[in-house]
């Protein structure tokens, strides 16, 4: 019979909880940078310049068409080999998650832009508003508003996927749970704690997303 023995890992639980900060740091920084990068890519996608369009679409297909873990390992191991620069775990993680989430976010924003009524663009054109101002002040603010719920979903995905950083040694929730596990020769309990922490974080985000959606509907 299996008996769960949380008492033995009890002293290590604060150590695992510390990982929440690390996980959140990876998630939030990558999400912000990915949002900026994704916005730029989405502008490429709706631009009239075919070369920009082609680049953004090709880029997206690469980052959506290969495993995130592979991207992470490539960036972590290949960067020193190619450039001689020793990339830290933190840098490799942020870079990978940013590049990857940028691809997904660019698709979200692109669909937000194309779903806007074309009358908005025509009104801006008829007033002589230049393209850059039109995008910045008329189109993107409306697109962002419409896609907020999808962006929160992307944040949730990223939060969970950030656990991959433990593979290259990032001291996030999962990695810490694994360290505790191998110290105590107990696997189930620390992993359950890790799972619980992820679940709570995701639930908080989900709740926030629901609230947001409701607020947007009534506004």
């Amino acid at each position: 019979m299996i008996i769960l023995d949380f008492e033995r890992i009890w002293p290590s639980i604060p150590y695992i909880i510390e990982g929440v900060k690390v996980t959140l740091a990876y998630t939030s920084v990558s999400l912000c940078l990915g949002f900026l990068w994704g916005t730029l890519l989405s502008l490429f996608k709706v631009s009239h310049l075919n070369i920009l369009k082609w680049f953004a679409n090709f880029y997206t297909s690469i980052f959506r068409g290969t495993p995130l873990l592979l991207q992470l390992m490539l960036i972590y191991h290949a960067t020193p080999q190619l450039t001689g620069y020793t990339i830290s775990i933190w840098e490799a993680g942020i870079l990978t998650f940013t590049l990857n989430s940028g691809a997904y976010i660019s698709e979200i924003i692109r669909s937000g832009i194309t779903s806007l009524d074309k009358g908005q663009k025509e009104a801006a054109l008829s007033l002589g508003i230049p393209y850059s101002l039109m995008m910045k002040d008329i189109i993107l603010p409306q697109a962002f508003r419409n896609i907020l719920p999808s962006l929160v979903n992307e944040a949730i995905d990223l939060l969970k996927e950030s656990a991959l950083i433990s593979v290259i040694g990032g001291a996030d929730i999962l990695r810490r749970a694994n360290i505790v596990a191998s110290e105590k020769y107990l696997y189930f309990e620390p992993l359950l704690v890790a799972g619980f922490l992820y679940y709570v974080l995701v639930m908080i985000l989900t709740l926030a997303a629901h609230r947001l959606e409701k607020k947007l509907k009534t506004a």
Partner: peptide, 11 residues
């Protein structure tokens, strides 16, 4: 220009 669907900026 004035449009059939107004096209005011809703935000």
């Amino acid at each position: 220009m004035v449009f059939q669907q107004f096209n005011l900026f809703p935000h």
